[in-house]
Computed example of a mutant assay.
Amino acid sequence: MTDTPPAYVRPKDIDNRASLWQRIQWRLETIAWDVIYWWPMKLLGPDKASDFGGWVMTKIGPRLSQHKTTVHNLKLAFPDWGEDKINRTALAAWESAGRTAGELPHLPAIDPYTSGRVDVVGVERLDAINASRKGAVFISGHFANWEIMPAAICKRIPHAVMTYRALNNPHIDRRINKLRHDYGTGTAAPKGIGTRELMRALARGAPIALMNDQKFREGVAAPFFGHDAMTAQGPTRLALKYGVPIVPVSTVRTGPARFRVEIHEPFIPEDTGDTEADILRTVKRINDFLEACVRAQPGQWFWQHRRWPKDARREAGVI
């Protein structure tokens, strides 16, 4: 078995469908990425970049179309909250997203084990999984800066494989992918290519990690904050198929470019022989874990995506 992370893999259909004008736009976006965002943030240093990114997004975020989604999601999840608390949490969510953007160019300076900026709780569980060479399925969500968690895993388990959603812009996508590899995070592209890579990884005894908190249309309906949300069943299916534990992981921002990553107690999904019932039971358990993390730090979750279907939002009267 090799401890070398998988090579960069990009779904070719993204690029093959692009028109000439789209390719020109990608180039222009990349120039703007480098000149307006990346290098100015890089010059600030991790703490100031985190603060500045957070401040900027508290000004820009509420003006974006995603702000309405953020507010609607918060009202759906916390129906007993007043407008003031909803708005304050929505603003905190934008600040968290901005801090993440500011911190991205500084990931090498936020090494989970050598920088003094990250407290990793449960390292012994990572070491035990690494020593077992039997694989595991790590699950987490978009908490605080979600780039820190996979690095915390891969620095202790170099042969672990992380899922990765390719960006449309191939030039920026390659930049981010290189940064992740330099940071010590292995990645695998999604949409079929990633699924095969994850299965191969588990078959050879390598752990895998997936984000399980976003809408997945082909998933199963499972309660999340009291409302059914389409949730990916892939982590559970893989854990059952290969007989490996599911390991929940949480990340909390404790200051500018500072975090606590916790590796929670692993559990083996119950296998009663009724596959669909077993999957639904475990998906619910995963959603319960994610919901508890969000409730603990509601301003540090990525509320800006449409997690619940329109019917749930309509029934709750938040549309």
Rank of each mutant, 00 (worst) to 15 (best):
A188G: 11
N169W: 05
I208E: 06
G205N: 00
P158F: 07
H159R: 13
I139E: 12
E147Q: 11
P207N: 00
I148F: 01
A209S: 15
D173Q: 06
R180W: 09
L210G: 11
G219F: 01
P170M: 05
E197Q: 12
F138T: 09
G141P: 10
M162L: 04
W146Q: 08
R180M: 13
A188M: 00
A201M: 09
M162W: 00
L179D: 06
L179E: 09
N145S: 01
R156H: 05
G219M: 04
P190D: 10
G141D: 03
I208G: 03
Q214H: 10
H181S: 14
L202T: 03
A222S: 14
M162S: 12
A222Y: 05
R217P: 09
L202Q: 02
F143S: 10
Q214V: 08
G186N: 02
A151V: 06
Y183F: 15
K191Q: 13
P207V: 05
M162I: 03
T163K: 01
G135A: 09
W146C: 07
T163P: 08
C154W: 00
A201Q: 06
P150I: 04
I139L: 14
E218T: 11
T185Q: 10
V220D: 04
A203Q: 11
G141S: 07
A152C: 04
T187G: 09
A222H: 08
T187V: 11
G135D: 08
H171A: 13
